[in-house]
């Protein structure tokens, strides 16, 4: 994911803040994984230097993302920007929880 891909796929980063009250518990994690799985790009989530795949539920839960946590989302692939837009939207919508 961090290594350069053979084709000239775009790579994009975005810093976001978790906004829902209960943070990244199982339901939001499942929503995020479902969304991330719809894109061709490799997507990772990073917090305090720990980077996990956006397709790993155990990885996401291990990050212990709570309300106010800052994360860096990185997407690499042909639809990197669309992926980041969609994920940013989901997080900013507070995972439709509140």
């Amino acid at each position: 994911m961090s290594q350069t891909s053979p084709n000239n796929d775009a790579s994009a980063n975005r810093t976001l803040t978790i906004k829902n009250k209960h943070g990244m518990h199982a339901r939001p994690a499942a929503l995020l994984i479902k969304l991330a799985g719809q894109f061709k790009s490799d997507i990772t989530i990073e917090k305090d230097g720990t980077k996990v795949s956006a397709c790993s539920i155990m990885g996401l839960l291990t990050l212990e993302l709570y309300h106010g946590s800052e994360i860096i989302i990185c997407a690499q692939g042909p639809d990197a920007n669309e992926a980041l837009d969609a994920i940013a939207d989901l997080i900013n919508r507070k995972f439709d929880e509140e």
Partner: peptide, 17 residues
């Protein structure tokens, strides 16, 4: 198990805030 872990997470993450 899924429900219990989720409850634990919600509790922990809410306390962190």
């Amino acid at each position: 198990a899924a429900k219990e872990l989720d409850e634990k997470l919600v509790q922990t993450l809410t306390r962190r805030v």
